[in-house]
Simulated assay, not measured.
Amino acid sequence: MKRRVLIGSAAAAAFARQATAQEAFPSRPVTIVVAFPPGGQADVVGRPVAAALERIWRVAVPIQNRGGAAGAIGNAAVARATPDGYTLLMALSSMALLPEAARVNGREPTYTPDMLAPITLFAADPTLLVVPAASPISTVEEFIAEVKRRPGQVSYSSAGNYSALHVPMAQLAQAAGLDMLHVPFQGGGPALTALLAGQVQCMASGPGPVAPHIRNGTLRPLATWGRTRLAGFEEVPTLIEKGFPDCEFYIWVGLFAPVATPAAVIARIRDASRQVAGDPEFRRAMAASGNTLDHRDGEAFLRFYTEDAARLVRVVRALGKIE
């Protein structure tokens, strides 16, 4: 009996400590991992999210850029992190397809999507096809004609094989029968730098990183991968309008935690994320960066994520193995 009492007391004490820890969350800095170098879509959205969370929580929320393997390294790091809410992932849509890409190429995935719990969606914009403003190409038709005129010579940059910047270009190549030269980089930031430096001729990108360069006349948008035209770029046609019904791709940005994170901690992060979505400074930052705020959480985000992940897996399987 005495032993049972001691065990019961220990369990009660442990429960009390856990409850106290959850009530106090966050009591120290919360790190948000971006699985790419600075300058890409996840980084552009992640930094104003972190700044808003710092205002709400009154603790530091540093961004940690952990690039490599098209995002798989950073994604896996968070998937395997201590599930206490203090290490979160600002993920791109490619998070859902990279494990399938590993399998297609005969490798064991370093993580699986079910190791990460979706918390909040902040943006879900279609990618934009952009070329330098100095390019003689000004329409989708001219772009396709140029690629067909020079098969294998028109190059595009991406954040790596099967990344959220590679897959839409591969979709277009399949749909239009194009042979383009893929030049993968370690993230969207370096991929954009390569385009601006004239090292490649085009790229697909989320609107955030390229919007300032479109506004200042450095880049020219040719089309989007959306079902409807993108807000703020209403003059830019969709590829669906141009006769490519299968060219639909959204580069979404959402916050995830390791799946075993306590429900009470997830709830606190979700509640704070709702406050972020309504924060005036955050909304101004999103508008200035060219991103459309698309806040969804709970069942709404889970439904969106599940449906999109299934579609992306089908795309990866169609792409097949990449040497």
Rank of each mutant, 00 (worst) to 15 (best):
I251Y: 02
F15G: 12
T120H: 09
E100C: 05
A51S: 12
L121A: 04
A60W: 03
C247L: 05
L178D: 05
Q201R: 10
G39D: 06
A231W: 07
A77Y: 06
T20H: 15
V59R: 13
A211R: 11
A318C: 01
E235P: 00
A11I: 15
P113A: 14
L222H: 09
M115P: 04
A263W: 06
G68S: 11
I63S: 09
S158H: 02
G71Q: 00
L97K: 00
E248C: 09
D114G: 05
L116P: 04
L312V: 03
A197N: 13
A91Q: 00
P190G: 06
L121H: 05
G67W: 09
R283G: 08
A277K: 04
A194H: 07
G74W: 00
A76Q: 05
A191M: 07
E299N: 09
T306N: 11
A260Q: 14
V259F: 06
R220D: 05
I7M: 12
Q199D: 12
V34P: 00
E281I: 06
A81S: 15
M180A: 07
V265Q: 07
R107K: 10
I266Q: 13
A260K: 14
Q22K: 09
A50V: 04
G8E: 13
D84Q: 08
A123N: 15
T20V: 10
V44G: 02
S138F: 04
S163W: 00
V200Q: 00
T120Y: 08
F249K: 01
L195H: 08
T218L: 10
R220P: 06
P99E: 02
I322L: 14
P26L: 10
I56F: 09
T261I: 08
P126S: 13
V45C: 09
I240K: 14
L195N: 07
M169P: 02
F143I: 03
R268L: 12
I322V: 15
A159C: 03
I144M: 07
A170Q: 06
V265K: 08
Q174S: 14
Q174P: 00
F185N: 01
A133F: 11
R58V: 07
V200A: 02
V276G: 11
N105T: 08
R274K: 15
